[in-house]
Design a binder for these strands. Sequence first.
DNA 1: GAATTTCTGTACCGACCGCTATATAAATGC
DNA 2: GCATTTATATAGCGGTCGGTACAGAAATTC
Lengths: 198, 198
Amino acid sequence: MLDTEKIKRRGRPRGFDRDEALEKAQTLFHAHGYEGVGVAALAEAMGINPPSLYAAFGSKAALYDEVLARYGQSALPVMGLLTPDADTAEALKALLREAARLYADDSQAIGCMVLEGARGTDADATRCAQSRKAAARQQIADFVALRHPDKADLVADYMVMLMSGLSADARAGTPPDRLGAVADMGGLAIEAMLGGRT
Amino acid sequence: MLDTEKIKRRGRPRGFDRDEALEKAQTLFHAHGYEGVGVAALAEAMGINPPSLYAAFGSKAALYDEVLARYGQSALPVMGLLTPDADTAEALKALLREAARLYADDSQAIGCMVLEGARGTDADATRCAQSRKAAARQQIADFVALRHPDKADLVADYMVMLMSGLSADARAGTPPDRLGAVADMGGLAIEAMLGGRT
DNA sequence: GAATTTCTGTACCGACCGCTATATAAATGC
DNA sequence: GCATTTATATAGCGGTCGGTACAGAAATTC
């Protein structure tokens, strides 16, 4: 899996940087969604032609999958808040606040790419995104289960649901301050469910 | 506006029931979203041909708009919970519970057609849906403002955000009982914000 | 050098998109 | 009857979709 190194391969070498191309694709997918951007637009933004895209990534859906993986790594700082020694409720509230801030930050693209991607029409694309959504949910559930095993599933469901709503509202244009206030209000339910400073 | 009656109009009479056709279109739009269903599929389900569709409704977007209006009326029972004499928190919690039940009910279509429609790629369709979403939000804000004017906007934002998340999870396949539990947990934030039995 | 392998650009495929030109069918007004 | 008006069915418009056949270019191995 670690043959990303520049092994001398025979044949004509690729004329573009694969990761740079992925980054351009990520920008477009995040901004317009899987169905909102076509292969032609992707190829143009990546500075290549469709055949090169298909040679390097296989298909539009496969490219999307790689982009989602890349996004998952860059969005890891969010999940990094869930360290085992953190206070459960405080960490979840911080996660909500950070999600709201991130989703409304229009310096990049609006909303969560995974959660938005999980709602599309295309079967392949939604399957990819939903699997990553489920993985994130499980991460949250495992974290909550450290101290509240009986409430882990419910709280994880609640967190994901809330983040889906936050992402939707962010994309609908809700400004950062209002989104943050809503996220904080969502945190009240966590406190009520888990209690403060447990 | 009330010329829905069977006024004798000259020319060949329409060969299909307009409202029945709308109902079929509603089913398809709700199940697959605006972008997920084409004019050909709509026309076939309505039992007509594309030209009849355009003659009767104008365009795909206009048909969608009428369908949304129809949906808004059939979904009114939900908003009917917000009567002026109802307890604020209790009514909102009941609304959440009812929304969760309705969204997960697969006897018809999954999720909220307005909230899902507000997230699409097509500019016209999302504008229609977002305007109805905003109207519903205002209805909630007005209801809350009756007794908690300073918190009306925040609580309305929170309610809409939560319902968006519920609708997304419902479409992702979350079963009714889990969805209901999450909605109830969301209600805890309302109690914390407005207090019980105010 | 030649043969092989791989990538790249042009140009295009069939399928579907929303939509409509055209001609005909079925009603009314006179 | 006849003209007018409206709705229908057939067939097809230009455009975009995801994806590719093909030939040439650029690297390797021998």
